[in-house]
Write a protein that binds this DNA or RNA. Structure first.
Length: 462
RNA sequence: GGCGACGUACCCAAGUGGUCCAAGGGAGCGGUUUGCAAAACCGUGAUUCACCGGUUCGAAUCCGGUCGUCGCCUCCA
């Protein structure tokens, strides 16, 4: 059985074979740091996290690079509007971004290069394209890539290059393109850019937004690497252009697998600021939703399917996670040496599902089906000690990918909650049921659900 | 207009030619358990996979058509 991934380049599932045995070089498109990430952005990073974790779970050594776009129209515009230094602003947003990922238990990339640190490399790349005759300078100091020189142009997005050149939107562009969809490798400096410009042989300005990914990916991963990811909106023009320029800058194939995640929509509609259904992580946490429940919600829908994000779905996710956490707790209590039946973990089912283009629903189905058997055996006190150990180990193993069961996220109000529970336990031992019940209601109002067990009172978030 | 995805029980969702008279999660109902709960367990849920037609011994799964939903094509994950 082998891992198969859907390659946008061929629009089909292909068996994944790394360039270098046992190792995977992975590049994922990171954020443009002009505003905090919204839940839709985070969906894509969650998909990439599952991809990376599953590759690692399968035994690959992964090198993961994510770019930080810290110079483009939006970042410059915002810095100037707020009268802040560009790098100071982008750095603070980048740090918030990293905190958001950590909150959701998304593994940080091994390298997080900032575009502004690689401008010299980008200038060198553009020079190569000029030298090779596939790029040209425009009157204002800009440099454009000539797509008519690229026979493969349009392959990723699946459109005929001829139709692109007949595009009717040519005149929209401020820069002097002489062909419809030629794209900017370098943007000549404009007054609106303020101090944010760099010197190049053909004039002052800044890199076009596709160039950074070619240069930074090749810097860390080589000119030919395994997987490049992003959201579907990146397919065109960003990745198409990145592929075109890389193909001509480098003398090797560029990327073997292009993977793209579908968008997240909210309550059935596209998320947008104008519709007012625009969620940022912190707002969701402020509503009392837990990081684990949000993580589960974002990972439980297959990455090539639109994810309809609703608050109900997050609540369902919380319950699903609670079930697995409860299973772990029960397994930990089985006495050593206990006799009983053997129940094997569903490793084959889990692997078969995940190997099929990361079929997470199938994988979760396997885990929950197995969980049901374990609970039934545990209730009958009929699970053998070896099976218990295997089950716990398997649960920990699956959670290396899922990242929602054995988490120890800091809970707000934890001390207050535990104090109230202590008072209630006292009331219960005094058989003061009305006081015990009112304390339980008070805790319920805080979103805390109690479980009285022979081993004491447990609590969890609802 | 071009490109693409999708339509499976009350909701979410896997399954892509027979082992499916269709996984799993959530909600519901009845029962066990519990001081009461919670959690867990037992039982209960689609004779059916948007609709119509076709291929086949056999289709949720393949082909054609119809209807519907959504996305990309412009900055956007």
């Amino acid at each position: 059985m082998a891992l198969r991934l859907h390659n946008t380049l061929t629009r089909s599932k292909e068996v994944f074979t790394p360039i270098e045995a046992g190792k995977v070089r992975l590049y994922t498109c990171g954020p443009t740091v002009y505003a905090p990430a919204h839940i839709g952005n985070l969906r894509t990073y969650m998909f990439e996290d599952i991809l990376r974790r599953y590759l690692e779970w399968s035994g690959y050594e992964v090198t993961h690079v994510m770019n930080i776009t810290d110079v483009d129209d939006k970042t410059i515009e915002k810095a100037i509007a707020e009268d802040r230094d560009l790098l100071e602003m982008t750095e603070s947003i980048t740090q918030r971004f990293e905190r958001d990922l950590a909150t959701l238990n998304i593994l940080p990339a091994h390298h997080l290069p900032r575009a502004t640190d690689y401008i010299d490399g980008m200038i060198g790349g553009i020079q190569t394209l000029l030298d090779r005759g596939v790029a040209y300078t425009a009157g204002d100091g800009s440099v454009f890539f000539d797509i008519s020189k690229d026979a493969g142009y349009g392959q990723l997005v699946n459109i005929d290059p001829a139709s692109l050149r007949q595009g009717e939107r040519t005149s929209d562009d401020d820069y002097g393109k002489d062909q419809a969809r030629d794209f900017a490798l370098w943007k000549g400096a404009k007054p609106a850019d303020g101090p944010y410009k760099w010197s190049a042989p053909w004039g002052e300005g800044r890199p076009g937004w596709h160039m950074e990914c070619s240069i930074m990916s090749s810097h860390f991963l080589g000119q030919h690497f395994d997987i490049h990811c992003g959201g579907v909106d990146n397919i065109f023009p960003h990745h198409e252009n990145e592929l075109a320029q890389s193909r001509h800058m480098f003398d090797t194939p560029f990327v073997n697998f292009w993977l793209h995640s579908e968008h997240l929509i909210v309550d059935g509609e596209k998320m947008s600021k104008s519709l007012g259904n625009f969620y940022v992580l912190q707002e969701l946490l402020d509503r009392g939703l837990t990081p684990e429940a949000l993580r589960y919600t974002l990972l439980a829908t297959h990455y090539r399917q639109q994810l309809n994000f609703t608050l109900d779905k997050v609540r369902e996710s919380q319950k699903a996670i609670n079930r697995l956490k409860e299973l772990a707790r029960r397994l930990e209590q089985v006495p050593v040496g206990h006799e009983g039946q053997t129940i094997l973990p569903p490793d084959d089912q889990w692997r078969a599902a995940m190997d099929s283009d990361l079929n997470i629903s199938g994988g979760l189905g396997a885990i929950f089906g197995w969980a049901k058997e374990l609970f039934a055996a545990l209730d009958r006190e009929a699970l053998s000690a070896p099976s218990t150990g295997d089950a716990l180990a398997a649960l920990r193993s699956y959670d290396k990918v899922l990242g929602v069961i054995f988490t120890s996220s800091a809970h707000a109000n934890k001390e207050r909650i535990e104090e109230l529970i202590k008072q209630r336990d006292k009331a219960r031992s005094d058989r003061d049921w009305s006081r015990a019940d009112s304390l339980r209601e008070e805790l319920a109002a805080m979103g805390v659900i109690l479980e009285d067990t022979p081993e004491g009172t447990l609590w969890k978030r609802g």
